[in-house]
């Protein structure tokens, strides 16, 4: 079997997708990054290798997400692409004619507007991470419920509580207050969903023309409470595609197919699972900028460096993909 590998290394989750020649998902893996992106990629590849038939050949690799450069260096990716483009590519292939993509991940949220199959506008959350997956995780943990139960519980609410969603810190104190007043958990959760959706539409979605079909993807799309809150706020049907939580990886795999149409893949093989990678860093003392240089070593050999403004260190290595 031949196919393409897409890897999305995000702040919270690391996702892998193995896509067949025909563009269908053959296998997908959703892992927690747990702050160790290299390990997560290796773990994911190991699981993928075990899940796929032994003769499977990877004919192209694409990486995306905030850890895309790291994952790209380790795997020998054919294409390293930002997460906005990959999400747009995946959604427009899975849901033809999509005009709006709402994406909420672990640490960031974005909105992508497409018109006639082409990205027309996009926005990402700025400094505020209110309403992203990690905040929902945190609140679920504080209320002592599993994140998987969050959505179904919120759906059971009859009278959602009004919660201040402007800022995650205020939302939390507001929730605690409401708990102390005796409101039940379902209503608080539903109120939280409403507040976060409101916050999302006011910040990320500010001034954007949201037209149907609307696709909701990213890890938070698993939360049916959030989906319903969006439906309520927008008064539109919201599609959650089947592979909503690995759409970035799927888009990367699609781009890898395009990138390898005229050349062979640079994939370094599943052998990298057992190799020793180490990401270290040091502060350069060349000038008062004191850049923090990141250094990726494989069995003691430096394979990549980045983070320096002047190119003093990254320029020392001959690289195919220049990371600046």
């Amino acid at each position: 079997m031949y196919g393409y590998l897409g890897i999305d290394v995000g702040s919270v989750s690391t996702n892998l997708v193995f896509m067949g020649e025909d563009g269908t998902v053959k296998h997908s893996i959703y892992l927690r990054t747990r702050g160790k992106p290299i390990e997560a990629v290796q773990r994911g590849l190991k699981m993928l290798k075990e899940a796929l038939p032994p003769q499977t050949k990877i004919t192209g690799v694409g990486t995306t997400g905030s850890g895309r450069h790291l994952a790209g260096v380790i795997t020998g990716a054919d294409i390293i692409k930002n997460e906005i483009t990959t999400h747009a590519i995946a959604a427009s292939n899975v849901v033809p004619g999509v005009q709006t993509i709402l994406e909420i991940g672990g640490q960031d949220s974005k909105i992508i507007i497409l018109r006639n199959g082409v990205v027309a506008d996009f926005a990402m959350n700025t400094v505020c991470a209110a309403g992203t997956g990690s905040f929902l995780d945190q609140q679920a943990a504080r209320l002592n419920i599993d994140i998987e139960e969050f959505g179904p519980l919120a759906l059971r609410s009859r009278v959602p509580v009004q919660i201040a969603g402007r800022c995650a810190v205020f939302a939390e104190s507001d929730m605690i207050h409401k708990q102390q007043m005796g409101y039940n958990v379902e209503d608080i959760l539903a109120g939280l969903c409403d507040a976060l959706v409101r916050n999302y539409l006011n910040n990320v979605g500010k001034g954007k023309e949201i037209l149907p079909p609307v696709v909701f993807q990213g890890g938070v799309a698993a939360n049916v409470g959030m989906k319903r809150a969006f439906e309520k706020a927008l008064d539109m049907e919201i599609h959650v595609p089947p592979y909503f939580n690995v759409m970035g990886a799927l888009g990367a795999a699609m781009l890898a197919r395009e990138a390898t149409s005229r050349k062979n893949t640079g994939f370094r093989g599943f052998g990298i699972v057992d190799r020793d990678f180490y990401a270290g860093g040091f502060a350069c003392d060349g000038c008062p900028n004191v850049c923090e240089v990141v250094e990726i070593t494989e069995s003691g050999r430096v394979i990549a460096r980045w983070g320096d403004r002047c190119g003093r260190w990254s320029g020392l290595l001959e690289q195919k993909e220049k990371i600046s």
Partner: peptide, 11 residues
């Protein structure tokens, strides 16, 4: 910034 710039140029 890099992510936004790349996505912008793609667009």
């Amino acid at each position: 910034m890099v992510t936004r710039l790349e996505a912008f140029l793609d667009m």
